[in-house]
């Protein structure tokens, strides 16, 4: 067995624990509680370790998600920029599906999803570059989840845990970016027919296109890029809402359509 440095060993151990927590559905204590000095850099390494593991098991990276895109969320975690996670083929559902994905303590968040037609390579990606690279836009609901007990997450905890991703549901009526006023999409979310929250796409850094540009530039630091046909979930349009199995959920975005699903 090859000799790992202490840091590499630690990263590998945390990746194992988080992966195990997901498969056993037994959430673990926060990394930052056990290791108060756990860095953001190490946290992304943990995330990449488990990304490689899923790929080795046959799953495919089909895009990225952006988290912590609203001022209230950033203030809550004491950060000033978003974070990101990986989206896998196994996580993808479509509006109307029953969601049979294994989840620990899921919450739902309505989002705007972008599907790219060309690679988007940082650094210095601008809003105009993003507009050029977008094939189409669909409404989406992200099912976020945490392998950390009671969602007691700090920034390194959520980053290591693939930005608290679970799975996601895409709408099936695509729009061209020129058809919609992307920073002004109103949204009404319901659970089992009762309205639970409302929001606007302006909640995402003031404009979801800014979040995509941020992601493209951030990925440059990690030596990866956004690929043609990849999905980008740009960030929550309102606060996340906890859901139980059997519950139905719906997000209506006015003329931009709607997305719905039901937990198994």
């Amino acid at each position: 067995m090859s000799q790992l440095s202490t840091e590499e060993q630690e990263i590998s151990d945390w990746a194992d624990r988080l992966y195990e927590a997901g498969t056993s559905k037994q959430p673990i204590r926060p990394l930052t509680e056990v290791e108060p000095n756990f860095t953001i850099e190490s946290a992304y390494k943990v995330q990449l370790k488990n990304t490689a593991r899923r790929v080795a098991h046959g799953d495919v990276v089909v895009g990225h998600k952006i988290g912590l895109t609203s001022k209230p969320m950033q203030k809550l975690l004491g950060v000033s920029e978003p974070d990101y996670g990986h989206l896998f083929r196994s996580m993808q559902f479509y509006s109307g599906n029953v969601i049979d994905f294994p989840l620990v303590q899921p919450k739902i968040e309505p989002e705007i999803a972008f599907i790219l037609k060309e690679d988007l390579v940082g650094p210095n990606v601008t809003i105009l570059d993003v507009i050029h690279a977008i094939d189409f836009v669909v409404p989406a609901i992200e099912v976020i989840d945490s392998r950390i007990a009671d969602w007691k997450i700090k920034l390194p905890d959520t980053i290591a845990d693939n930005a608290s991703s679970g799975c996601y549901v895409l709408g099936t009526r695509p729009f061209k970016i020129s058809e919609i006023d992307i920073a002004r999409i109103g949204m009404v979310m319901s659970v089992d027919g009762s309205m639970v929250d409302t929001g606007s796409s302006a909640a995402v850094l003031g404009n979801p296109l800014l979040a995509v540009a941020w992601l493209a530039n951030k990925l440059f630091d990690f030596d990866t890029t956004l690929r043609a046909r990849h999905v980008v979930l740009s960030g929550a349009v309102c606060s996340a809402v906890s859901l139980q199995s059997g519950q139905r959920f719906q997000a209506r975005f006015g003329q931009f359509g709607s997305v719905e699903g039901q937990f198994q």
């Binding site: 609203s70 001022k71 109103g186 009404v188 929001g199 606007s200 909640a203 850094l205 975005f253 006015g254």
Partner: peptide, 20 residues
């Protein structure tokens, strides 16, 4: 019902919602 509203305070989006 689906009309989006965003409120900026000193340039920063601090609240969003919809008519519903």
């Amino acid at each position: 019902a689906e009309m989006g509203v965003s409120l900026r305070k000193n340039g920063e989006v601090v609240q969003t919602g919809a008519g519903a």
